[in-house]
Design a protein around this nucleic acid. Structure first.
Length: 827
RNA sequence: GCCCGGGUGGUGGAACUGGUAGACACAGGGGACUUAAAAUCCCCUGGGCCUUGUGCCCGUGCGGGUUCGAGUCCCGCCCCGGGCACCA
């Protein structure tokens, strides 16, 4: 008898799979397609446990569906552009490309050691010219359509690193890398017009309800932040201009007592000139403008404002309203101007108290009299309008509509919708990214690089000094000729945010070598959308929103008719050690390689599937994985213990002629198959693995009772074991293929059909009849299954132990749950 | 503050649609085998009580409620995790 030797068999089967190209897939209209995708990794150097968990889950799904007759696309690749590569270049002098490709090499070997069923012929790296050239082409088309544009915008800028930082790279107002203060700078930056799709991105979420985690849907909803309201124009007193405000509470417009403008608002300079002490006020405004944006966005940051000296006119009341500049007003949101109603907005209330501005109540709640003199906070609830002219007495929700209608009629306002979502800033002043394919000509201005000149390649050599954008310093790259006039021109040196690459890689997988466009329409029509996407919840908004947006853009550019890329989403939890995320700094990293070394890949995969349901965080346990290894050894001994007897016999057997133990074994097997099938369908891998363990325990008990001399019995057991092995295949594929072959079979379990179970044999002959008296369990009785209600009642009532509880009492009623339970209600 | 999750033994987690709470595993205790150890196998393992039984009582964050019956449904709290947050 062979001992379970994971390393030997894993190496053997991985080689066999590779040689037979078992994971290669093609479009095939004869079979239903299934696109199973896991988020591709950043090639940071080594695979970590989080990846192994993610990909183990994906592999079960892919292998299961393939065995169920689907044509499964299961690709893998590399999200290969990004800052760590450039940091490595700065720190160790390795070229980002060398660093990245070496990491890919290593991580690919690690993934292969884990036995995942990827079609490696579809592998892609986003830093390949063949990949990013198509991204440049799509960019040009977006530019043409106005979906990509350049504008001056306030951004986070680190003086020391001489580069723009994304919001998430600003930690507590400081640069995450050099810890120097981040300032706000107005810079020309490239944006994608994601706001144009705000409504569609919001509505699209409805289609995904039930198939994406609710949490992710809600996060995207919040992020998009649609709010309905109105825009109202306030004329400036003594100036032929007006201020437009956005408000969600047009019903409170009669309560406006001042106006707040964002410091960046373009009218501010002009208004301040109306103040007698222009210079002093301008100084104050400048001070507010210099407050870092990141700090201004914090809740605790002190709210302050400056009176501009100017007034505007409330179009409803004709009242003069003072105009303030306030640091809490965001220029990017709404119109950058807010009508302040201190009685009904807490922020305005606090501001009014601070600067001693009037408070005017215009909404009265029922059964309560609001008095501006005694109010301690704003009343933001509903009520009836007062002090509001012809709208007095109206319920405020009604008044919203009436006031909007009135304004639209008179032409100084309208109902409108605003979003929190901003356009996507995609410029990065970094080397290791996709170059933005435009040039600047002194004569022609900004000129797109013609398509036939793509790709705009990253220059191989660039100085990685740690300051400034290396691309700017490569003369050969920067200096070029204008495609329009042939004159001297400068290249754009910004590269694209790496989230752009990950926004369409799933399309590229469908035809990764296609050289006539980003992807082959036919292949995409066949494979897309992704049927099951699996990855970490940390991408709930960023990547998953960008990818949805980009898909809609590709659709509108005519590349596809898919408008939601991921039909279903599973967000797996993190892998923790000692209750926290694994990290080098905390020294609690468990290295997958060392675990594979110790137990083999199958054990590692099995533990990650068993230790927690996929969507929950998983606590790594050295003892836990040990338990999984012991289980596989026990299972191995069970399945191979009589292998020489089993190998020679057929599979057809006569159930009726089996021994009791044989019958029991067959029934256990079919019940197991039923349970595992149902669990895998629902992604409940942890309970599926538990079912295998339970099965193994029971079969060990039966082992000595089974008649190993009887041919019919042997045939039955062989059939059972083969079915079990097939069901194990998605979980522990090397183990399964080895036992499959020891049982005398050719080929791979992955090419076999998922085992069917016989419903007849999953039925219990006997049940435990639970008898309750007044809802408390008082007896458990072994009884044949399928009894009628009357028979169950009879058994219950006549039971000795039950009699004790019901004698001398009157039975009020008896509730029967067929095949399960009887509850006798007595008084 | 708002919005999502979640709270079950010493631990990770089970429990279909309201019907036996604690499957499976880990840890712990006891035993078998062994000169010994490892490996393996067997038994016990939520708390309490006594009359040691096929026993009784309590027990799924807390307090109420609905129901013959609640971990599961409803109401009100507490705690933990995550997300958003001066968004007008």
């Amino acid at each position: 008898m062979h001992k379970y030797n994971p390393h030997e068999i894993e190496e053997k089967w991985q080689k066999a799979w590779e040689e037979s190209k078992i994971f290669k897939v093609y479009e095939d209209n004869q079979r239903p397609k299934y696109y199973c995708l896991e988020m591709f990794p950043y090639p940071s150097g080594r695979i970590h446990m989080g990846h192994v968990r993610n990909y183990s889950i994906g592999d079960v799904v892919a292998r299961f569906l393939r065995m169920r007759g689907y044509n499964v696309l299961h690709p893998m690749g590399w999200d290969a552009f990004g800052l760590p590569a450039e940091n490595a270049a700065i720190k160790h002098g390795v070229h980002p490309a060398k660093w990245t490709y070496e990491n890919i090499e290593h991580m690919k070997r690690q993934l292969k050691r884990l036995g995942f069923s990827y079609d490696w012929d579809r592998e892609l790296a986003t830093c390949d010219e063949d990949y990013y050239r198509w991204e440049q082409k799509i960019f040009l088309e977006m530019l043409e359509r106005g979906l990509a544009y350049k504008k001056k915008a306030p951004v986070n800028w680190c003086e020391k690193c001489h580069t723009v930082l994304a919001n998430e790279q600003v930690v507590g107002g400081k640069c995450w890398r050099c810890e120097s203060e981040v300032v706000t700078k107005d810079l020309e930056q490239w944006f994608f017009k994601i706001t144009e799709y705000a409504d569609e991105l919001l509505e699209g979420l409805e289609k995904l309800r039930g198939k994406w985690p609710e949490k992710v849907l809600v996060m995207q909803e919040n992020w998009i932040g649609r709010s309905e309201g109105a825009e109202i124009e306030f004329k400036i007193d003594g100036l032929d201009k007006s201020i437009r405000v956005f408000t969600t509470r047009p019903d409170t417009v009669f309560g406006v007592t001042f106006m707040s403008l964002a410091p960046e608002h373009p009218l501010v300079d002009e208004l301040v000139k109306m103040h007698p002490e222009t210079e002093k006020i301008m100084g104050e405004v400048e001070r507010l403008r210099k407050q870092p944006r990141s700090a201004r966005l914090l809740d605790e940051f002190e709210k302050e404002g400056v009176f501009t000296g100017a007034y505007c006119i409330n179009p409803f009341t004709g009242e003069k309203v003072p105009i303030f500049v306030a640091n809490f007003v965001l220029y990017e949101y709404g119109t950058g101007a807010v009508m302040a109603v201190p009685a009904h907005d807490q922020r305005d209330f606090e501001f009014a108290k601070k600067y001693k501005l009037p408070i005017k109540v215009v909404i009265q709640p029922e059964g309560e009299e609001l008095d501006p003199e005694t109010m301690t906070e704003a009343y933001e609830g509903q009520g009836y309008l007062v002090n509001s002219g012809q709208f007095n007495g109206m319920f405020n929700e009604e008044a919203k509509k009436a006031i909007i209608e009135y304004m639209e009629d008179k032409g100084f306002g309208k109902g409108t919708v605003t979003y929190r979502l901003r356009d996507w800033l995609i410029s990065r002043q970094r080397y290791w990214g996709t170059p933005i394919p435009v040039v600047y000509c002194g004569k022609c201005g900004m000129v797109p690089v013609p398509e036939e000149e793509l790709p705009v390649k990253l220059p191989k050599d660039a100085p990685f000094t740690g300051t400034g954008n290396p691309l700017e310093m490569v003369e050969d790259f920067v200096n070029t000729t204008c495609p329009k006039c042939g004159g001297p021109a400068k290249r754009e040196t910004d590269t694209m945010d790496t989230f752009v690459e990950s926004s369409w890689y799933f399309f590229r997988y469908c035809s990764p070598q296609y050289d006539k466009g980003p992807f082959d329409r036919k292949a995409v029509d066949y494979w897309m959308p992704v049927d099951q996407y699996i990855g970490g919840v940390e991408h709930a908004v960023l990547h998953l929103l960008y990818a949805r947006f980009y898909t809609k853009v590709l659709r509108d550019l005519g590349y596809t008719n898919v408008d939601e890329p991921f039909s279903a989403l599973l967000t797996q939890g993190m892998v923790l050690k000692d209750g926290r995320k694994m990290s080098k700094s905390f020294g609690n990293v468990v290295d997958p390689d060392s675990m594979i070394e110790k137990y083999g890949a199958d054990t590692v995969r099995l533990f990650l599937l068993f230790a927690a349901p996929p969507e929950k965080d998983l606590e790594w346990s050295d003892q836990g994985i040990d338990g999984c290894y012991r289980f596989l050894n026990r299972l191995w001994r069970l399945l191979t213990g009589h292998i020489d007897d089993l190998r020679g016999v057929g599979r057809d057997f006569d159930f009726a002629k089996l021994s009791d133990a044989g019958k029991e074994a067959v029934k256990r097997t079919h019940k197991l198959l039923k349970k595992v099938t149902a669990d895998v369908e629902k992604f409940r891998f942890n309970t599926a693995v538990a079912a295998f363990m339970e099965y193994t325990n029971h079969m060990q008990d039966l082992e000595s009772c089974i008649n190993w001399e009887d041919e019919n019995e042997l045939r039955a057991i062989r059939d059972c074991f083969e079915k079990v092995v097939l069901a194990l295949s998605p979980f522990v594929p090397h183990f399964a293929d080895e036992v499959w072959s020891l049982l005398g079979n050719e080929g791979f379990t992955l090419n076999e059909r998922w085992p069917e179970y016989n419903e007849e044999w999953t039925k219990e002959e006997f049940i435990t009849l639970v008898v309750q008296v007044n809802g408390k369990v008082r007896a458990r009785i072994e009884a044949p299954s399928g009894l009628s209600e009357e028979e169950m009642k009879k058994i219950a009532v006549e039971n000795e132990r039950i009699k004790k509880w019901i004698d001398g009492k009157s039975i009020v009623k008896i509730i029967v749950v067929p095949n399960k339970l009887v509850n006798i209600v007595v008084r």
